[in-house]
Design a protein around this nucleic acid. Structure first.
Lengths: 342, 342
DNA sequence: GCAATAGGTGAAATGCATTACATACCAAGT
DNA sequence: ACTTGGTATGTAATGCATTTCACCTATTGC
């Protein structure tokens, strides 16, 4: 059934559409009796003005497009919740797309968002690094950013000047590694993360630097990037377990891989943290419910989402925004990193 | 900066907008040279037709509105992923809203979706039961359903005939309880779930029936609905632990509460499943990574999402759909329910 | 008593793409 | 030579709400 339009209301109230519009938006005085009649009809037909017609004219949709790599990883819903929280006040809603790390999909979604004239774009996950196959995505992203306020959340992009909001993952990594070192560990591994992702490369670099700063050797066979899933943690832990020598502690790129590592360790008969210390990254809600509780680096996911939307809103109202808004991560010490080594 | 429109392209190509439109949609033959020139300009300006203008005319937006109670609970992202999977082919995208169980928000979002003229609505979580405060939400939902294809996912609503897609949670509960009984348990508790939610009442009823069928007594002090969070599981487990007599097994309304129960148990020095058997519901991805691995009832979340969108698409093309599409849950026996009692 | 102002309302332009209808051209068929 | 039909393209209507401009009526001030 066709929905009721402003014309239907106007006709039945025997006024022009302008008058109905005035009642709707309260933009000009309307006679009490006329207003009453119109309001009654609006009520009666449960009339909702067509947002598209309005958007077409106003040149704004009230929609923010969000692209996340994997909503199934609890980190992202947290960010999203933060974003939603901030968007609440301004009445923005979200067009959400899950790219599951598929470059083609990501640029396709981006183009759909441009088509739909979203008011802003939030691109999460930063699975970007200039490699040939991603050329197109990068191009599309830059294209989008030139017409639509766009922020990159936790993901940089070399040779472009897109606005970014990000946790200082480098500092976070240093925090985690230093914590392990302070506990007495000298043999530390690195697990998880697709190597072509910004976040992975940042963490890898920071890891190496922290080790170097402590004058510790980085053992290349213990550097095991993979992906961000629980299974990748398991897989790499199994690899580690098969080695003659293994580290006494591992740094994991996120909590999901940390959970995988612990799980595989426990299945192999290890006790975590007694036989191996594990730290994660993100502080997903589950981190402090897992057994053992995860020592991890909190990204303040909620805040990250909020900030991203704040920046987006500032851009929408043509305010100047910083090229990079950085959030400080925090080390959350719990059980999985264990006690100081004797 | 204003985006390029079809008029801009037409002007520069020295043709009418219809011709440009024809090139865009390939709806009629266009002379090779003209087409080439237009295509070149489209490329040059990276022109994307305005989806709103098109939607306004076509009376469809290509958007499906989704309302989930809590994206932070891993069950929902799974459902969403399934929905997205199915929507891929038809090119639908999602307007997603997180209601966090707030009735006011839910009906507000519903009204926004109506305003935005989404092509379909997927309402998850079924936090509905006719109580006074929810009157408005119910009304809004029925209102929506009368103009927009709408499906309720895992949530019924008395006295209405909204289309539903749901796991047979009743059968699932029976599966879980019977499993515990078969293991030799006779003293079984029930934990979690807000009592005004459809899913909770279904599970409560099914639980009682399963107990009765086995001629077991339901101990009212062990019936502990609360909410769906990990913390509610913890909280109720603590209540249980404070009792003089406690059950040897508990059925939890979802995996999150089960995790809370186990966690609180372990913290209190119990060993799960040796000291108490625990079964959950949903089979979230983490269920088989948790320590101990969760025995749970799989809802086939992904399939649920897919099915919901399938039904929605059928409704959009005016096909007749069943009032209720039911999915069979499956018991997944893992560690947390333990071995048969001696 | 007349201008100025405020209240109340309608007509028409606007935003942008799609599409039915109209028109123009050219080649083939009778 | 004239109809027929395909190809190629333009004009105008359409979808729906907002907003500017114009206009009318009734008051208020001087």
């Amino acid at each position: 059934m066709r929905q009721v339009t402003i014309y239907d209301i106007a006709k039945e109230a025997e006024v022009s559409i302008s008058t109905v519009s005035r009642v709707l938006n309260d933009t000009a005085p309307v006679k009490g009796s006329t207003r009453a009649k119109i309001e009654e009809l609006i009520q009666k037909y449960n009339f909702q003005p067509n947002a598209m017609a309005r958007s077409l004219l106003k040149q704004e949709t009230g929609i923010i497009g969000v692209i996340v790599p994997d909503l199934t990883n609890p980190f992202f819903p947290e960010v999203f919740a933060g974003a939603e929280h901030e968007a609440q006040q301004s009445g923005h809603t979200f067009l959400l797309s899950n790219s599951i790390g598929d470059y083609a999909k990501e640029s396709e979604y981006l183009s759909i968002m441009r088509e739909k004239r979203v008011d802003g774009i939030m691109f999460l996950g930063g699975r970007i690094n200039l490699r040939h196959c991603e050329e197109h995505l990068v191009q599309e992203l830059v294209q989008c950013a030139s017409v639509i306020p766009t922020v990159l959340v936790n993901g940089g992009l070399r040779n472009t000047d897109l606005i970014r909001v990000a946790t200082d993952e480098s500092a976070g990594t240093a925090l985690a590694v230093r914590h392990l070192i302070e506990l007495g560990h000298t043999e530390i591994g690195f697990i998880g993360g697709e190597s072509n992702m910004t976040t992975t490369s940042i963490k890898l670099r920071a890891f190496r630097k922290a080790m170097k700063d402590a004058e510790l050797e980085v053992r290349e066979e213990w550097m095991l990037p993979d992906s961000f899933s629980i299974d990748s943690g398991k897989r790499q832990m199994l690899n580690l377990l098969a080695m003659k020598e293994r580290p006494t502690a591992v740094f994991c790129v996120n909590d999901y891989t940390a959970i995988g590592v612990i799980k595989a360790g426990v299945e192999a008969g290890l006790s975590i943290p007694d036989d191996m210390s594990v730290v994660g990254f993100d502080d997903i809600p589950l981190a402090h419910h897992f057994i053992p509780e995860l020592t991890t680096v909190s990204q303040q996911a909620h805040e990250l989402g909020r900030t991203a939307v704040k920046v987006l809103k500032a851009m929408m109202s043509n305010e100047k925004v910083k090229k990079l808004t950085s959030l400080e991560p925090q080390l959350v010490v719990r059980q999985s990193s264990g006690a100081p080594m004797r």
